[in-house]
Design a binder for these strands. Structure first.
Lengths: 251, 251
DNA sequence: CGACGTGTTGAGTGTGATCAACATCTGTGG
DNA sequence: CCACAGATGTTGATCACACTCAACACGTCG
């Protein structure tokens, strides 16, 4: 399942970017916008299940998510999988590989995923001419690190129920900040296998743990999807205060 | 235990930095060196047990480790602690807090720790005038993310024995790349409580797990310290290939 | 139709947690 | 100098959370 049909044109030139107007994102200087517009060389739309970036590869591109869900993960040689984080619109993917040369993780689409495509070899031009954008890139990397810190705390020190509650509250909040389910049903398009591989649990125990959250009316489970009904309950169970949401840059 | 006696002078001006000559670190342009030298406002030496940066605070400084060991961690309100990563010479700490405003984790010294002190509010000058250094900062943030990814895989998907083997091999390799125990005994200055809080295990089970590694002659445990005897054995147990060590920047 | 992905539930097992007791060693105050 | 508290490491006994195995229901898709 690797339908990588690159739709070449730009349906969404940066000047009419559907994300930028959201007040989650910081304002942009006109010259910055002009640069990004040139930096962006195209768009890419992929189906659910497509692997966008592969661990061990040397990608010539980086991407910003325009719409849809995805996840970053690592595999062990015997097949064990750990999901590291999820990506939602506005997130930059492939920066790590662009800087250090080789991807250390893979990225897969959870839903139809629209991506803005950037050329890796133009990255240094950005650093040379646009210190504000360079700062933004570091900012995005630092924020990814913050999310990973919290995930690590979760997997290392929270119980199964706390972990599940944390994860679903986390994904729910991230979806809301980028209006991911503004239109239509408010569901997170994951399977219980994804939850298990994120939390470091077996799929059977994940199922039983999610059932407890369902019985408390905190969530609802649909076919390959989760709907958060009571975010406050999840935050309480997890002992988590939520994303201290700050305005963030958008590449 | 908060002996924060700031030794003001510069014992080690950047021009005679004891770390930079190591070939782990990338070469520097003269103008970059000059900038860093001005950017560095002093040195700070703290004792073992000192908390260098506190979660929730707004630090005006960032630091580069000149010598010694430390660790980054998060606490939950009921006292559970998760160690996120360790810091060794050459590592930059406090960047996250400098960018996003508030520290989301704490940093504590594992041994006597010597730090170079930088002023946060000069950070943007760096971005404006030194794109190479700006690139380096993002590079360092991306590398921290890579280490966290691997730690998360470990805690989420490796068994207790595999986790312990991974951690000690990891710390051993990091120590070697910066010649941390070039002089004197080659020990990692941690307690079993630190290991437990890194791996997400109880201290009792950590003790029993480390005993297995000791019985296999892979490590030796001293008072508040670990000595790696058979790195290959640890790598084998963990199913880990080691740090693909690349030359890295030094601030 | 059968194969496959996904979700569900029960039974038995085991890894790792908790509880408890003890051995050292250090530092501190009397 | 000793008594004591606290940090660290060790080991055994018991418990429970989470894993494995197994079977089944349901949908989609070739």
């Amino acid at each position: 399942m690797t339908s990588t049909a690159p739709s070449l044109g730009k349906l969404y030139p940066c000047e009419i970017c559907p994300l930028r107007p959201l007040n989650t994102f910081r304002d942009f200087q006109p010259d910055e916008l002009a640069f990004i517009s040139r930096f962006k060389t195209g768009e890419l739309t992929v189906d659910r299940g497509t692997t966008v970036l592969v661990e061990g590869s040397h990608s010539a591109h980086l991407y910003t998510v325009l719409s849809g869900w995805g996840f970053r993960y690592k595999l062990m040689s015997d097949g064990r999988r750990q999901i590291l984080n999820y990506v939602v619109p506005g997130d930059l993917i492939g920066l790590q590989g662009s800087l250090t040369g080789e991807m250390q993780h893979s990225v897969e689409a959870l839903s139809t995923l629209m991506l803005c495509v950037f050329e890796r070899d133009q990255l240094f031009t950005l650093y040379r001419n646009h210190p504000g954008l360079a700062y933004d890139l570091t900012w995005l990397a630092a924020r990814e690190e913050q999310m990973l810190d919290e995930n690590l705390l979760s997997v290392g020190r929270r119980s199964a129920l706390e972990r599940a509650a944390y994860l679903l509250a986390f994904l729910h909040q991230r979806a809301q900040t980028v209006h991911l389910y503004a239109n239509g049903r408010a569901t997170i398009p994951i399977t219980q296998q994804h939850v298990a591989d994120t939390l470091g649990l077996s799929i059977v125990h994940t199922n039983k743990t999610l059932r407890k959250l369902i019985n408390r009316n905190a969530i609802r489970w649909l076919d390959r999807g989760c709907e958060v009904l009571d975010e406050a309950a999840l935050l309480g169970i997890a002992g988590w205060e939520g994303l201290g949401e700050q305005r963030r840059p958008l590449m």
